[in-house]
Amino acid sequence: MTNAEHSKLKVHPELSDSMITVKDLHKCFGELHILKGISTTIDQGEKVVIIGPSGSGKSTFLRCLNLLERPTSGSIVLDGVDLLTLNEKGVNYMRQSMGMVFQHFNLFPHLTIRKNITLAPVKLGLMTEEEANAKADDLLEKVGLYDKCDAYPSQLSGGQKQRIAIARALAMNPEVMLFDEPTSALDPEMVGEVLNLMKQLASDGMTMIVVTHEMGFAKEVASRVMFMDDGQILEEAPPEEFFSNPKNERTKLFLSKVLI
């Protein structure tokens, strides 16, 4: 499919009040062309689930959104600001409003759970130590791990670590949460606890962009499912339509191979 064809398929018109607008995003790693013109818009409160085969560029796309990877060309507009025009300070400020959860948790092993959560708000001068501790305790209650507040990451199970990572991102009061395969590194029996927390977050109205292989989660929580392959969005639709009546041949093939 060419870019021209693809732009006709776009579900959302270019609304200026949309939260994130991505236009013709390209990313190359040297010779490798990973993203080949991504365009989409994400509205406040949407839960976008991105699926697709390995190497399709879904993680790279997600990491471009908060500029952990710098796009080669294109534009990302968040709340009316083109992120690619920001200087370093601007990028750091923008990242405060975009929480990110990683596949491998990336908790800080030298800090207690509570300190993991309070480090950024305190060091950025957004909260005092007491305010941050109160906020951390609230969040730990919410993710059901209050009793672990003085433990270290190495004492937690994978599922617990990921719930703490989510709490850490939430401590910054982000406008949008990015999830990069949050359950892929977990034991099967721990996937549920993390997905449940994410569902809870979704029902609280958080804007979420989730890269995952959990089709059940996509069906249940997504407001829109996006299928990516070879650096392009091949199809995006609400989950009922996407799973029951996929239009793209590649999507059909992919869905026929994954267990739902």
Partner: peptide, 12 residues
Amino acid sequence: GQFEAGASLGLS
């Protein structure tokens, strides 16, 4: 990942 986690929180 430690650098990325720190950066994603908005830390310089």
